[in-house]
Nucleic acid binder design. Sequence first.
DNA 1: TGTACATCAGTGAACGCGCGTTCACTGATGTAC
DNA 2: TGTACATCAGTGAACGCGCGTTCACTGATGTAC
Lengths: 209, 209
Amino acid sequence: MSEAKSAESRPYHHGDLRRALVDAARRLLEAEGPSALSLRAVAREAGVSPAAPYHHFKDKAELLDAVAKEGWEILGSQMAEAKTSAAGMQQLTALGVAYVCFARDNPALYRVMYDAARDKEALPAEMQDNKASAYCMVRDTMVEHGADPTEEQHLELASAAAWCGAHGLAEMAGFKQFDHLKAELGGERPFLEAVLSHMGLFPKPHHGC
Amino acid sequence: MSEAKSAESRPYHHGDLRRALVDAARRLLEAEGPSALSLRAVAREAGVSPAAPYHHFKDKAELLDAVAKEGWEILGSQMAEAKTSAAGMQQLTALGVAYVCFARDNPALYRVMYDAARDKEALPAEMQDNKASAYCMVRDTMVEHGADPTEEQHLELASAAAWCGAHGLAEMAGFKQFDHLKAELGGERPFLEAVLSHMGLFPKPHHGC
DNA sequence: TGTACATCAGTGAACGCGCGTTCACTGATGTAC
DNA sequence: TGTACATCAGTGAACGCGCGTTCACTGATGTAC
C-alpha cells in the first residue's frame, strides 16, 4: 500500500507532492477508514517526512478540504456518466443510484466530504452554480423532463428533497435491517431504485393529479 | 458546566455513577461536540478519576453505546408526543418534523447515535420490534392512515424511504444553501414540512392515481 | 448490638502511543550576469 | 558556458498534548455470626 520509494527512484524534490498527498490520503482513507486519516499517516503513506505537507497545505484541515473537493468532482463525473446511460425520467433514478453507489464504493471519502460540509454548514459553494456539479445536475434533469422551470420554488424544494433522500439512503443502504428487503427485491440495485422511487425522485407525471 | 462537587457533598461512593457518566457525556457532547467526547473528559466532567468509568463500562465504546441508546429513547418519546399533537395524515409529517427537530436540537447526540449504528452496520435492534421505537411509529402511522398492511413490501419500502428522507434532511437542514428557501417559506418549520411533503412521507391519498 | 471480613467502587500514578505543529537545517533548482 | 546566489521543497528531531487503559491501592459498604 505504501508509496515509499527506494532512495534512487524518489528524488529529493518530489515533483508533485501535493497531488501525491491527496492520493495517499484517499488510499489510506479507503484502507483504514476516516479515523486513520492523520496528517502524519498521510505523509508516511506518501513516503515523506511529517513536516513536508506544510509546504503545500496550511494545516490538516486544508488537506482534508482538498480531499473532499476531489470527492465532489468524482461524484459529479460519475453522475454525469450515469445520466447518459438512461433516458427520460429514468435519468433521475439513475442519478440517485449513481449517488448512492458512489457513497457505497467510497464510504470513507463520502464521510470526509460531508464532515467538511458540516464544518462549514454548507455544501461546497461550486455546487450551486457549476453546471457539472452533482446538485445542479439533479435540478437540470428535473427541468428537462417536465418540471416547470418558472416554478422556481417548487423546483428547489424538489431538488432539496431528492438530495436529502439520496443522502439518507446512501448512509443507510448498508444497514442489515434492509438485507431481507434487498433479497426479496432481487439485489441491491432494485432495492435502491425502489426506495428512490418512493421518494420525490420522480417528477410528478401530471401536475394536477 | 462541570459536575465536580466539593469534598463534603460528594461521598466516596457515588450512588449512581453510571447514570452520572451518561449525563456528563451528554452535557459535554452538546457543549463541545462529538470530538471532545473522550473517556477522560467524561470522567472529568463527572468529577471522577479517569479509571472510575471502568467499573461501569467495559471500554469507551460501551459508554458511547449507552449514550446512543439514550438518544434513541429520547427521539422515540419526542416523536410519540408529536404524533399525538396532530391528526390524520398530518401525523406523518409531524413525525418527520419531530425527527428533524431532534437532530437539530441535539446535533452531537444525533451524530453519536448514527456513528454507533454505522459501526454495527445496523440501527439498534430494538428499533424493529419495539412499538415505542421511532422506526415502528412511522410504519404504524402509515397503516393507521390508509396504507395497506397486507402489502408488506410496499409498506416497508415506504417506511425506509421516509426514514432515509428524514435522516437526509436532518443532516442537511442546517446548511446555508437552504437559507433563502427558509426565508421565502416563512421559517424553518414550513421549510421542513415542504421538503418532507416532497418525499414519500405522505401516504398516497388514492392508491391508483 | 458488635465485630470480622469479603466485596465493591472509588483513587492516583503510570504505561505507551500517535497526534499536529514548529524549528533550524540542507540539498536541489533556477536565474542573473 | 560557468559561477554566485536566492529561493524552494524537502529532512529529522523535538515540543507539548490528550488519549485509552492498567495497576496496586484504599476507603466505604454490607453481611454472617
